[in-house]
Amino acid sequence: MLSTTLFYIFSIIIVLSCLGVVSSKNPVYSVLFLILAFINSAILFLFLNAEFLAMLLIVVYVGAVAVLFLFVVMMLNVKNEEKNIKFQKYTPFTLLIVTVVFVEILYIFVSDDVILKNISLSENLSFKNNTIFLGNILYTDYFLLFQISGIILLVAMIGAIVLTLRSRIGVRKQVINKQISTSKSDVIEIAKVKSGDGA
């Protein structure tokens, strides 16, 4: 009973904050609403007995991804009017994507092909906790998919690094090894000057 009430409260907060994400004029507010949605989705994971996933959602999405979003958005100086004009031309694409996703979700709910019960975490909980359960599934049945997704992420990361890597000429960069291995004799020359000769 209480569980259901709480579920509806958190779901309503998620829906409202998602609306906030798309309707906010200020992009910083959008990201903050997005964070609110993430946190509430994490709470919904708790209802599914998936405390590991809940914490992971907060650590990865709120603690790292959204920070970088916020980081970038705060640096932008988007004027409200400009933003509206610029985004107007993307409306057809937006509608297309939204329709596709909506039809997909509808299909899952309506058809009998997809059995949602199979992806429930709480049903087959013969393990002590779902962290162990997830680990056992992930490293046995789904090992290949897990490794492949890891490699995809690695490739994406290397790609991003390569794209931003540029060697600049004329930058005097500190080379710490060189600095430490410098000895007194390398940099100081002690000259014995006879008194009066230096003038």
């Binding site: 914490m55 603690g63 920070v67 705060m74």
Partner: peptide, 19 residues
């Protein structure tokens, strides 16, 4: 049973107050 992750999550949220 996910105490460490909870602590890690909370400490990773601390950056929001600052930013």
């Amino acid at each position: 049973n996910v105490g460490v992750l909870y602590l890690f999550a909370v400490s990773s949220l601390a950056v929001y107050g600052v930013i």
